[in-house]
Computed example of a mutant assay.
Amino acid sequence: MEFRRLVRGRVDRPQLERIGREIASRYDRERVHISVLEADNWLSTPCVVDEEWFVKVISPQNALVHALFTGARNLGVFSRGEEGFFDRFEGPLEMSQHELEATRLVREIGLNAPKPVEAFGVDEFGVLVLEYLPDFRTLDDLAPEEVETLASDLFAALALMHDHGLAHGDLRGENVLVHGGELYFIDATNVREDGLSTARAYDIASALATLEPSIGGKRAVETAAGFYGIEELMAARDFLDFVRLRPDHEFDATGLKGEIERRAG
Rank of each mutant, 00 (worst) to 15 (best):
L183T: 10
H179C: 06
A199Q: 02
T189N: 14
V176I: 15
D203Q: 14
Y184M: 10
V176G: 13
A201T: 00
S197A: 14
F185D: 12
A188F: 12
G195K: 01
R200A: 04
G181D: 06
A188Y: 04
D194I: 02
A188I: 08
D187M: 06
D187Q: 04
F185K: 09
E182H: 09
V191P: 08
V178D: 05
G180V: 03
A188M: 14
E174R: 15
R192M: 06
R200S: 05
R200Q: 15
D203F: 10
D194E: 15
V176W: 06
S197Y: 01
Y202N: 09
S197H: 08
Y202L: 13
T189A: 14
A201N: 08
A199Y: 03
S197C: 00
L196C: 00
T198G: 06
Y202G: 02
G173H: 03
V178H: 09
G180I: 05
N175L: 04
E193P: 01
A188H: 11
G173N: 09
N190V: 02
G180A: 07
H179L: 00
E182P: 02
L183A: 07
L177W: 10
A201G: 13
E174N: 10
L196T: 02
S197Q: 13
I186G: 11
D187H: 10
G195E: 01
N175V: 01
G195R: 00
A188E: 11
T198H: 07
L196Y: 00
G180M: 06
G181F: 05
T198Y: 00
G181T: 02
R200E: 10
